[in-house]
């Protein structure tokens, strides 16, 4: 996008089941799909597109562990090293009393970390405008997009006929 505009040929489908059939067909025909855009998550699409499972939850685990350690080590340091105070006749290092805050910070770190990561890797932020192909994709159209930069006319025609033969109700091209 920054260096070169993408020339995109895309087809709009009316239903996710037609879309899934088309994507399966594209896979069989060894066509290189740039991306698929849908109004809601369509299950069964990821394996057809060869998308590996998201590792976001692994990142979440790491963030959570950082939260656990931050909370627990910090409270331990404060109450045993920095400013030891006896509360209610309990030991300085009163571990059970640290559990609630340790738990809360684990959840807080994991959630905030995952959400920030999600928006960052998706290239999303307040005010960001990412190019879209059609306004109806967030409504009721399911879109298969092919990048056609440098493709010969014959190749583009092949893609075009693929889209219409698999049931696309509209086939358009756009430079984004």
């Amino acid at each position: 996008m920054k260096d070169q505009n993408k020339e995109v040929l895309y087809g709009l489908y009316d239903d996710e089941e037609i879309l899934l059939k088309a994507v399966r067909q594209a896979k069989d025909d060894h066509l290189d799909i740039m991306d698929v855009y849908t109004p809601f998550p369509v299950h069964g699409l990821d394996p057809l597109l060869g998308l590996s499972e998201s590792r976001l939850h692994q990142a979440g685990f790491v963030y959570g562990a950082i939260g656990t350690l931050t909370a627990f080590l910090f409270m331990s340091w404060v109450f045993t090293r920095d400013w030891p105070i006896i509360f209610g006749g309990k030991p300085y290092w009163s571990v059970p009393a640290f559990i609630p805050i340790t738990f809360e910070l684990t959840v807080l770190f994991a959630s905030v970390g995952m959400v920030v990561t999600f928006y960052t890797i998706c290239g999303m932020a307040p005010g960001v405008t990412n190019p879209t192909l059609d306004d109806r994709i967030t409504d009721d159209k399911f879109c298969i997009a092919f990048q056609t930069n440098g493709a010969s006319e014959a190749e583009v025609d092949r893609l075009r006929s693929f889209l219409s033969s698999t049931g696309a109700s509209e086939v358009n091209s756009k430079t984004i």
Partner: peptide, 30 residues
């Protein structure tokens, strides 16, 4: 546009979105 953060509906984004929702649900429950 400002508040929708540049959402496109890409398949990969939906996949991550669902993964995020599920983990956030798992964290929010306890």
């Amino acid at each position: 546009n400002y508040f929708s953060f540049g959402w496109t509906g890409s398949a990969k984004h939906w996949q991550r979105w669902e993964s995020l929702s599920l983990v956030l649900a798992g964290l929010s429950t306890p």
